[in-house]
Amino acid sequence: MARAKYTYEKTDVKGNICLVITDADQGQMSVTNDIETVVAKICEKEELKPEKCIIVYKDSEGAWDGYDAEHNHFVSLGGGHWMHAINKYLKMLRESE
């Protein structure tokens, strides 16, 4: 069971399944510290494989981060709108190929 409180939406961006998670920041464990459980719970509910998703989340300080579920790796994406964070993350992933 996830210990963090959050909201999320599943969306398609440029043919990629994206999970956009927002930390509710209500004093519980942060999404950052509970990311594996949060992603597992969402993916189970949505019947998704986490390693096939682009995952971004807005942390309790209002910054967007990316999460690579396959390698348990975090990427700082900065502030702004979630769409900006996803596009930045997709660009970073393309450049690393």
Rank of each mutant, 00 (worst) to 15 (best):
A2G: 00
A2Q: 04
A2T: 09
R3S: 03
Y6E: 01
E9V: 01
K10D: 05
T11P: 04
V13S: 06
V13R: 07
K14R: 15
G15Q: 07
G15N: 11
N16G: 04
N16D: 11
N16Q: 15
C18S: 14
L19K: 01
V20K: 03
V20M: 06
I21Y: 00
T22F: 06
T22H: 13
T22M: 15
D23P: 07
D23A: 08
A24P: 09
A24H: 08
A24D: 15
Q26C: 04
Q26M: 13
Q26S: 08
G27T: 03
G27H: 09
Q28E: 12
M29G: 03
S30F: 04
V31Y: 04
V31S: 11
N33D: 13
N33R: 14
D34W: 11
I35D: 10
I35G: 09
I35C: 13
I35R: 14
I35W: 14
I35K: 08
I35S: 10
E36R: 14
E36D: 14
T37N: 10
T37E: 14
V38W: 01
V38R: 07
V39Y: 08
V39Q: 08
A40S: 12
K41C: 02
I42L: 01
C43E: 12
C43I: 13
E44D: 08
E47R: 15
L48G: 03
K49R: 15
P50A: 13
P50V: 02
C53I: 00
C53W: 00
I54Q: 09
I54N: 00
I54C: 11
V56H: 00
Y57C: 02
Y57R: 03
D59E: 08
S60E: 07
S60K: 10
S60Y: 09
E61M: 06
A63N: 11
D65W: 14
G66D: 11
Y67L: 13
D68G: 09
A69N: 09
A69M: 02
E70S: 12
E70A: 13
N72P: 02
N72I: 00
F74L: 05
V75A: 06
V75C: 10
L77A: 02
L77G: 04
L77F: 10
L77V: 13
G78A: 11
G80H: 08
G80Q: 04
W82C: 11
H84K: 15
A85I: 08
A85F: 09
I86R: 03
I86T: 14
K88Q: 05
K88V: 00
K88I: 00
Y89T: 01
Y89P: 07
L90S: 08
K91V: 04
K91T: 13
K91G: 10
M92C: 05
L93Y: 04
L93M: 14
L93G: 02
R94D: 12
R94H: 14
E95F: 07
E95K: 15
S96M: 09
